[in-house]
Amino acid sequence: MVTNITNFGRSGLSDWLIQRLSAIILLAFTLFMVGYFLFGSQLDFATWQALFQNTAMRIFTLLALLSLAAHAWIGLWTVSTDYLKNTGVRLIFQTLVILATFAYVVWGVQVLWGA
């Protein structure tokens, strides 16, 4: 039986599902931002600030940030287990990925919800 450690006990199906859902969220966020840039009347600081003062936009951006973190972790975990055969190297790589992902999420939350 194949086990999967990315989700601590859940199956590879849940990893697959998380990746697909996170990809859909990231696509929706990207399409929204591209549409905003293309069809926005003004693109100055005041307009940009007003966009991100909206609570719905902050939540959408936070969801995109968390989706990016989950998508990246599952993808990089899969790549590292497939291509990094040395256990020590794989452990170091995965630890660095976890730390970097955590730092980016915390930083993103601070930028998004900070004063």
Rank of each mutant, 00 (worst) to 15 (best):
M1I: 08
M1P: 07
M1D: 10
M1R: 05
M1K: 12
V2K: 12
V2I: 13
T3M: 07
N4V: 11
I5C: 10
I5A: 15
T6K: 13
N7C: 14
F8P: 02
G9W: 04
S11W: 08
S11E: 08
G12Y: 14
W16L: 15
Q19D: 05
R20N: 13
R20K: 10
L21P: 00
I24C: 13
I25Y: 03
I25Q: 01
I25H: 00
I25N: 03
A28K: 02
F29S: 10
G35F: 06
Y36Q: 09
F37M: 09
S41E: 14
S41V: 09
Q42V: 07
Q42W: 02
Q42R: 12
D44S: 07
F45I: 09
W48H: 06
W48V: 12
L51P: 02
L51W: 04
F52C: 04
N54C: 04
T55F: 12
A56P: 00
M57K: 03
I59R: 03
F60D: 00
F60N: 05
L62T: 05
L63T: 09
A64G: 01
L65V: 02
L66Y: 03
S67W: 02
L68A: 11
A69I: 03
A70Q: 07
A72H: 08
A72R: 08
I74E: 07
L76F: 14
W77Y: 14
V79C: 12
T81E: 15
T81H: 15
T87E: 15
G88V: 11
G88W: 06
V89H: 08
R90S: 09
R90A: 11
I92S: 10
I92H: 04
L96W: 06
V97R: 05
V97A: 14
A100T: 12
F102P: 01
F102Y: 12
F102A: 15
Y104F: 15
Y104M: 14
V105K: 00
V105C: 01
V106C: 07
W107V: 04
G108N: 01
G108Q: 03
V109S: 03
V109I: 15
V111S: 07
W113N: 04
G114H: 06
